[in-house]
């Protein structure tokens, strides 16, 4: 668990934005997935409190929103580190050495699957097919894809992220 407390209250204009977004759908619930993404961007993760506010803005039961969130895998959790590293582990990547990539990252970061480094910088996860089979092995860190991975590339990406820089030259453009 994170030791610092984060403010999970959404800004009033965000809630207004969500309410406006519902007009783009035949029924307000259509805006839920997109609204959760907006809320996730602002707070950094989705928890019960965030769900409650989004539910209120759309006008649907909070339990339904929470039930939906728990179905999907990529919403950021409160316990996730600053950088969430998703290593693709599905067959086309596996054929091209994804396990080696995962093991290398696990060793280098000193964490296992779904664990976060003590400095809260990295959370390591295994992803199901990221749709990058032609450029395997690959991983996604936060929003960005890194493809055609080699150990050297991984070293450089991690070093940049640790230094708080964007490893832009390795990001798929």
């Amino acid at each position: 668990m994170s030791t610092t407390t984060t403010n999970t209250t959404l800004r009033p204009e965000t809630l207004k934005g969500i309410a406006a977004l519902t007009k783009r759908f035949p029924q307000p619930e259509g805006a839920l997935l997109t609204s959760l993404r907006i809320a996730e961007r602002e707070v950094g993760f989705i928890n019960a409190h965030v769900c409650e506010q989004v539910a209120g803005a759309i006008g649907m039961p909070p339990a339904k929103v929470w039930g939906m969130v728990s179905f999907y895998t990529t919403f950021r959790k409160e316990t996730d580190g600053k950088n969430v590293v998703w290593v693709c582990a599905t067959l086309p990547c596996a054929l091209r050495g994804a396990e080696g990539v995962y093991d290398y990252l696990s060793k280098k970061l000193g964490v296992n699957k779904d664990e976060t480094t003590p400095d809260n910088l990295f959370t390591l996860k295994k992803a199901e097919c990221l749709g990058s089979c032609g450029t395997a092995p690959c991983m996604q860190v936060n929003d960005d894809y890194y493809e055609g991975l080699t150990f050297e590339k991984i070293d450089e990406i991690l070093a940049d992220l640790k230094a708080g820089k964007s490893p832009a030259r390795h990001v798929t453009q």
């Binding site: 783009r24 759908f25 029924q27 619930e29 259509g30 805006a31 839920l32 997935l33 997109t34 959760l36 993404r37 759309i58 649907m60 339904k64 039930g67 939906m68 969130v69 179905f71 999907y72 895998t73 990529t74 919403f75 199901e128 097919c129």
Partner: peptide, 27 residues
């Protein structure tokens, strides 16, 4: 034209699963 982004579920690719997800439900 409106973009809807998913959140990581293969089943959203199944056409009626996609509709459920786009309706704000589990896919």
């Amino acid at each position: 034209i409106t973009v809807i982004t998913g959140a990581g579920a293969y089943i959203c690719g199944e056409e009626t699963g996609l509709l459920s997800a786009a309706e704000g439900q589990r896919a």
